[in-house]
């Protein structure tokens, strides 16, 4: 099997929530530009899927795709998996330490208390969204914030992959759990039937989250939107990746060249 494709979808979450559409607010990437993917870094990605066949005409490879969503203007997905929870706990510890160190005998400065009150931050309830837990609001640099306008957007969640490529059984997408330390242990992947060359569009269903005030509480509200991309499946005879020629042994010299 060829290397797995990674497809990253970067969402301009702030504008997408404002405009209630992913059109113009989505940037697609894959790691196959060298092999012929088109529109990498734009809204119109066509992912190349190089299929191969053996000399007898039978299918030689399948292809595996992986999709990973990311939010523009947020803490990047490269921070550790439990980063937000760790930050919340570390911040609580610091606040408690400082609270304990306020000197009650000499009188507690009101300014100190106010400062600590701000440090405590605000919590937001998960509401109806997927993949969210109750937690403190962090800003985009990873610090607690009390401002509902400065919070870090939660990672977008892929909820489904549909469309022609799925209906025609070109690919079989599903969500998988994994010990991957970066994407919260869940990711969408698909295997592709490479025996039918052609261009096949598909639709990605994505859930974004916005913070709203509800009955005096901060609650995450889910916003479901869709965006589109395509697979371009080609088929070539299977060949040796080192020599470009037919299958067989590598043309290594029996004795290494001198020098």
């Amino acid at each position: 099997m060829a290397q797995q494709h990674g497809i990253i979808v970067l969402f301009d979450v702030e504008n997408a929530l404002k405009e209630r559409t992913l059109a113009g607010n989505t940037y697609w990437f894959d790691n196959m530009k060298l092999f012929g993917s088109a529109g990498v870094g734009t809204e119109k990605l066509v992912t190349i899927v190089p299929g191969t066949y053996f000399s007898d005409g039978s299918q030689a490879t399948e292809q595996v795709l992986n999709w990973l969503p990311a939010a523009l203007g947020a803490i990047p997905p490269t921070v550790p998996r439990n980063y937000l929870a760790e930050q919340e706990r570390a911040d609580d510890r610091r606040t408690l330490d400082e609270l304990a160190s306020l000197d009650a005998e000499g009188g507690v400065e009101e300014a100190d208390v106010k400062r600590l009150q701000r440090r405590v931050g605000k919590r937001a309830r998960p509401g109806t969204g997927r993949g969210l837990t109750e937690g403190k609001l962090l800003d985009v640099t990873g610090r607690t914030t009390g401002s509902a306008a400065a919070y870090n957007y939660p990672a977008p969640v892929i909820t489904d992959i549909t469309g022609q490529a799925v209906v025609e059984k070109i690919m079989y997408p599903a969500q998988y759990g994994s010990p991957d330390m970066i994407y919260d242990g869940w990711y969408w992947a698909a295997t592709v039937d490479t025996s039918r060359p052609g261009v096949y569009p598909y639709t990605m269903h994505v859930q974004l989250h916005e913070l709203v005030e509800q009955g005096g509480e901060m609650v995450w509200r889910s916003v479901d939107l869709t965006c589109e991309s395509s697979l371009k499946i080609i088929s070539d005879p299977k060949r040796n990746g080192f020599t470009g020629a037919g299958l067989g042994e590598l043309p290594l010299p029996a004795v290494p060249a001198a020098g």
Partner: peptide
């Protein structure tokens, strides 16, 4: 706005290293 203006560099490190060309692999 309360949020900073964030400038994000998306990098394909493998392609950049393989082709020794960062310009074509930086978004």
């Amino acid at each position: 706005p309360a949020r900073p203006v964030t400038i994000t560099a998306v990098v394909d490190p493998v392609a950049a290293l393989a082709s020794e060309n960062l310009d074509d692999n930086l978004y």
